[in-house]
Design a protein around this nucleic acid. Sequence first.
DNA 1: GATGATATAGAAAGAACGTTCTATATGGAG
DNA 2: CTCCATATAGAACGTTCTTTCTATATCATC
Lengths: 185, 185
Amino acid sequence: MRATTEEVRDRLLDATERLVYRDGIHGTGVDTILAEASVARMSLYNQFGNKDGLVLAALDRRDRRWMAWYEARVNGAAPNGAGRVLALFDALDDWFRQPDFHGCAFINAVGELSDPQHEVRQLAARHKQALARFVADTCAAAGLVGLDRALFLLIEGAIVAAMVEGRPDPAADARAVATRLVAVG
Amino acid sequence: MRATTEEVRDRLLDATERLVYRDGIHGTGVDTILAEASVARMSLYNQFGNKDGLVLAALDRRDRRWMAWYEARVNGAAPNGAGRVLALFDALDDWFRQPDFHGCAFINAVGELSDPQHEVRQLAARHKQALARFVADTCAAAGLVGLDRALFLLIEGAIVAAMVEGRPDPAADARAVATRLVAVG
DNA sequence: GATGATATAGAAAGAACGTTCTATATGGAG
DNA sequence: CTCCATATAGAACGTTCTTTCTATATCATC
């Protein structure tokens, strides 16, 4: 039995995303990825060139998937505008409660890489721009002006606090702050 | 010419702190540390046991030094209580503008380490507890109640945003949010 | 001045790293 | 049915990693 190109690609991306998210880029070896994906060594290099290409592809897919999940979770939560703003933090709460939660894969990756021009760092910057834009759109749809930057910083702070503290509580804390900010306009 | 034990220890801690902060724990090799510190290989193992012990000692020293710098910077900035709360973010602005700024060394370290029981992760948790306590004390001294958790999350968010975006702007953004929170009580 | 503790320089061991190569097998397209 | 692209298994290469060992030198102390 021989796997198709797409199957091999998916298994490699799945394993890489999981391991890099858990142990970091420099803490994840090619051998571990290959074992986890049950894939031959040459398949990695034929499909992605090298480890860097594989990691970049895995993080790129995670960017698109995570944003899609977050937007769907927020947009599907509350019908009205103000409630949707608070749903930004309810979605975080769900995320923080997942057993394998380990912060934001892109924040963690930037912390490992010193070169600002590194492709992974540029991807991380784009990921955060997309998140900030979604937060701004959500605020705009609720008729709330001048709040998006505050909510974005609260989201980022809650993510790292939940990781370092090992608790989901920062989601509720940030939500409470957001509630107050929305109330006072 | 032969260096003393304290000189060797300091040079090792200096090099380790700088390199680990810049390239991460797993991205920093023992050889690089030894070259940067201009220290013999055995001096590292005689004084710190192994790489883990050296990294832990370097981060422990950074914890105490950074907290002392931050508290002094905030407490020396403004005399009155409300201004001192805003100085929490002015100090961040100074920090973000340093050429070698690369986020919070402890957040970055936790992102690399999956084991919650790892000594470095426990040190990082204690570091953030100390920071949160200082923020709470600063709020209490200003007579502001129920604001400390919000300010802490804003600080954490500003740190990672400044790192990912490569700009110091999040300090001013977070300060503006804090100003509004203080104003409305 | 002798002694002991510790720095220095460098070799060396042993494992892990990323990458390349070879050889074989298998599935889909012409 | 044949052929070509690609998956598989595993050896092999050179590098880098952490750690240990050996040998020599230097400083402080008795």
